[in-house]
């Protein structure tokens, strides 16, 4: 590993995240923990999306759907009187894997803009599906009576949730690192770069992409479980298309196909929103142009800005930051 600005930034961020609750307790600002839990949860979902978007080159405009599936799992299980934590996680993973397998198999038949649009269409379908679930509050959504409990761990406790999100995020980034550098990841990345050549070499790209799609859906569903614990609320708005757009923005802001990019992107986007919201009620008036400027002028994302060379030119084995 080369010691560069990016690495320093990442170490700094990880250290700050690990120690933030201490600062929050000392400053008696528990809100900080909730705010940063939210950042890490969305960062987790963005990391899931990054697996297929950044490394696989598949622009899914519907990944908020899987976050919503995770959240609704918690809500539905509690609604039907299922307590305890393991069912939350297992059902969320199972449901997202099943839905991801089905929808992924259909979507991956298309490519390019058609893929973007068909993933969006499925997310919209899910949106209207959740709206129609009147026993879960329909359009308005529903409160969740209690969060996920894993033995002594109560995920709806602020501190527990914070560290659960932190550890899960670190775990997923580590998993992504192994995944994208293993043979599986080489296929996914090769397919992004040159799909035709993959087939000519004898690699059936579809099944690997589908696997990556399902893994990424499951990561997003885990983020959804945590999100339900943070808000203790579920709503069809979780799968609104602007949420999927926000996940895309986080991945791009941080740096496409970098391991820590999604987290950096989540931090920057949510902090920016928070900051602008403090200054003016009309913060979106400024967020929009800022996004445009980032896309136009900082193509490798923020991590790309700090990198010595452009991300796309880097030989693949250097993907370590």
């Amino acid at each position: 590993m080369r010691v560069d600005l990016r690495l320093l930034l990442i170490l700094l961020v990880v250290a700050c995240l690990a120690l933030l609750p201490v600062a929050a307790l000392l400053a008696e600002e528990p809100y900080w923990m909730r705010f940063w839990s939210r950042i890490m949860i969305l960062g987790l979902a963005a990391a899931g999306l990054n697996l297929i978007l950044g490394f696989g080159g598949l622009v899914s405009f519907g990944h908020a759907m899987y976050v919503a599936i995770g959240a609704y799992t918690v809500g539905a299980l509690r609604h039907h009187g299922v307590e305890g934590g393991l069912p939350d996680i297992l059902v969320a993973l199972g449901a997202s894997a099943g839905v991801g397998l089905l929808i992924g198999a259909i979507c991956l038949r298309t490519s390019g803009i058609f893929f973007i649009m068909i993933t969006l269409a499925f997310a919209q379908m899910t949106y209207f599906f959740f709206v129609s679930l009147e026993q879960y509050g329909g359009d308005d959504g529903m409160r969740i009576a209690s969060g996920t409990q894993l033995g002594p761990l109560h995920l709806d406790d602020t501190l527990t949730l914070y560290y659960s999100a932190f550890l899960l995020l670190c775990g997923v980034i580590f998993l992504t690192w192994r995944l994208v550098n293993a043979r599986f990841g080489m296929v996914i990345r090769g397919a992004r770069s040159n799909e035709q050549r993959m087939a000519a070499l004898g690699i059936p790209v579809f099944r690997y992409r589908l696997t990556a799609y399902v893994i990424s859906a499951m990561i997003c569903a885990l983020a959804g479980v945590l999100l339900a614990n943070l808000t203790l609320y579920i709503s069809p708005a979780y799968t609104h298309w602007t949420r999927s757009g926000e996940l895309l923005i986080m991945v791009i802001l941080g740096g496409l196909g970098t391991l820590f990019g999604p987290v950096i992107g989540a931090i920057v986007l949510l902090q920016l929103e928070d900051l602008l919201a403090h200054i003016t009620q009309h913060w979106q008036l400024f967020l929009g142009p800022i996004l445009i400027l980032v896309v136009l002028f900082a193509r490798g994302g923020l991590l790309g800005l700090l990198a010595p060379r452009q991300v796309s030119q880097r030989p693949a084995e250097e993907i370590d930051g």
Partner: peptide
């Protein structure tokens, strides 16, 4: 640019115009 850049940039335009 690729479609991803276009999606994001015009998404920014939506935020701007709505506001």
């Amino acid at each position: 640019r690729d479609h991803l850049d276009q999606v994001l940039c015009t998404f920014g335009l939506i935020l701007f115009f709505n506001e």
